[in-house]
Design a protein around this nucleic acid. Structure first.
Lengths: 136, 136
DNA sequence: ATTGCAAGTGAAACAATGTTGCAAATATAG
DNA sequence: CTATATTTGCAACATTGTTTCACTTGCAAT
């Protein structure tokens, strides 16, 4: 699906900032940080608009925010906007050497047995280590 | 183990700020936020010293930092400082209604099968939902 | 108990991440 | 093309965290 259609199919207005964010993520294999997206957006980038658009894109399920720790944050493109709560959850891998983040779609998240009375809405799994390139 | 001995056994100098932080966590069933600890510390609290002491206590394995998302951060007392990487890892539960955090020591973290070449150092699991009190 | 000094503290300044209010600009439906 | 609801961009603010540096303190050796 192209960038315009992704936005249109979620009833989100097609603005230059939003198109630039989605394009940057589509052209990248890996989730990107705000700064990496900012570089691609060049002079179009505005911090406040960026945060607001990220909220819009995340609520729509088009992107997901990956919080590695409170200072390392990445944004990943979800699969054609089909990523919502309770669906398509996947773990994220953070390489402590090259600081890249990878969506581990193939790592299935097991069913946790929560203590009785607890209700599960969502879960975030961050796996830290060394990626293929960095573990030699 | 009392507060003083915990610090002494890790070769960490016993200062009023550190004692106050560890005491606040010992007296609480649940992990606490900076602000909750600050309230207990009263006029002794100083932001810079707090962050520095948290780093010291975390590297020693006395406390662990729990990042729910980049704006909700809690600090939990580890079991007698025996919590280090690769050991005693446990998931954390965040109640989206009352915003409390619970260490889920009984939820075992399964072995993930990472893609080949990837090395695991550590993992953080945040489970979000409603706690016992809030799910009725 | 005193002293020396490494370690810890606290103030100021800075940095990154994020939010809110408001006036101006714009996307899109009709 | 126009109307209008949405979006943008600026200013200001909030939270979380770090760095530098002068001053103070914990504690071990005497």
């Amino acid at each position: 699906m192209n960038t315009t259609d992704i936005l249109k199919s979620h009833d989100i207005k097609k603005t230059p900032g939003r198109i630039a964010i989605v394009k940057a993520l589509q052209e990248s294999e890996l989730p990107l940080s705000e700064n990496e997206i900012k570089i691609q957006m060049e002079e179009m980038y505005d911090r406040i608009t960026f945060y607001r658009n990220m909220q819009v894109l995340a609520s729509a399920g088009i992107v997901h925010k990956i919080v590695i720790d409170n200072t390392i944050i990445k944004y990943g493109l979800s699969c054609c906007g089909q990523e919502h709560r309770h669906q398509n959850e996947h773990a994220h891998f953070y390489c402590e050497k090259c600081h890249s983040v990878v969506c581990l779609k193939e790592v299935r998240i097991p069913d946790y047995q929560l203590p009785s009375g607890y209700k599960l809405f969502d879960s975030d799994i961050i796996i830290k280590g060394a990626c293929e390139k960095c573990s030699h």
